[in-house]
Amino acid sequence: MLYNKKNYILMGISALLIIVGFVLMSGGQSEDPRAFSPEIFSGRRIVLAPIVCLSGFVLMVYAILVNGGERKSTDKEAKE
């Protein structure tokens, strides 16, 4: 098996972090589409949310690349 339980848990956590990051980026629209809303430049949207998303993507790469456990040897490897 390519991945084990540890890999899938890390992938789930990282997917959750990515979703939370995108939710943090949402909002900030003005009620009047012709009016400017400075709320789009809040610290939550331009600092916190990208950090959360980036940490989720980095954790996803780690979850994919980490060796979750010992590999079982195949018959071919056992003969060698």
Rank of each mutant, 00 (worst) to 15 (best):
N4A: 01
R44V: 11
R34K: 13
G21P: 11
E77M: 09
A49M: 02
I46E: 02
R44H: 01
A63C: 12
K5A: 05
S42A: 09
S14E: 03
R44N: 01
I51T: 09
S55N: 08
I9D: 03
S14D: 06
I18Q: 09
K6V: 00
F57S: 08
I9H: 08
G43H: 00
K6D: 07
E77H: 03
I46H: 03
M60L: 15
L17C: 14
I51N: 07
S30P: 05
M1C: 07
L65V: 00
D75H: 02
I46R: 04
S14A: 15
E39S: 11
I19F: 15
G21M: 09
M60P: 04
S26I: 01
P33G: 04
N4E: 12
V58D: 04
I9C: 02
G68Q: 12
E39I: 01
I40P: 00
K72I: 15
T74W: 07
L10E: 07
M25H: 05
K5N: 03
E31H: 06
V61I: 08
K5I: 03
L17M: 15
L65P: 03
M11E: 12
S55M: 14
G28R: 08
V20F: 11
S26P: 00
M60G: 09
I19H: 08
E31S: 11
L54G: 10
G43D: 09
N7L: 06
M25L: 13
L24Q: 03
L2W: 10
N7C: 05
G69H: 10
E77W: 08
R44D: 00
I51G: 00
P33N: 07
I9Q: 05
